[in-house]
């Protein structure tokens, strides 16, 4: 899997793109970087539309990013289109209502409204 940050938008919106499988094997190494990944952003979208698998380990990463954003006062959304595995898992753990949106456009709208 990969996780990378796109260059920030002009208004401080940062998009993080995760692809591949976010599972218990790969996530622990990423957790300590959560704070630095969102540092300085005014709003953050985590794009999971290219993620093929998400487990409770991956949920931990989403949770960590959400907290890091909350600490920095930055609104946070997760792009997880309906019908995909990441969306299903976020729904199962009760995080979809607060965080999940269907596409990046919806994320941008929600984040600008929240910001």
């Amino acid at each position: 899997m990969t996780l990378r940050a796109l260059p920030d938008e002009a208004d401080g919106l940062r998009v993080l793109v995760a692809t591949g499988e976010l599972d218990a094997a790969v996530v622990p190494a990423l957790l300590p970087r959560a704070a630095s990944l969102v540092a300085g952003a005014r709003a953050v979208a985590l794009d999971l539309s290219g993620a093929t698998f998400l487990d409770s380990g991956g949920v931990r990463l989403v949770d960590q990013l959400a907290r890091a954003c909350a600490d920095g006062g930055a609104p946070f959304r997760v792009v997880a289109p309906r019908g995909t595995r990441p969306r299903r898992v976020l729904e199962l753990v009760g995080m979809a209502d607060a965080l999940a949106v269907d596409d990046l456009g919806a994320a941008v709208t929600a984040l600008r409204a929240a910001g």
Binding site: D55, G57, V89, L92
Partner: peptide
Amino acid sequence: DERGRGLGIMRAV
């Protein structure tokens, strides 16, 4: 929490 979460996911699916 993550263990509880994992078990929760198993029970849910």
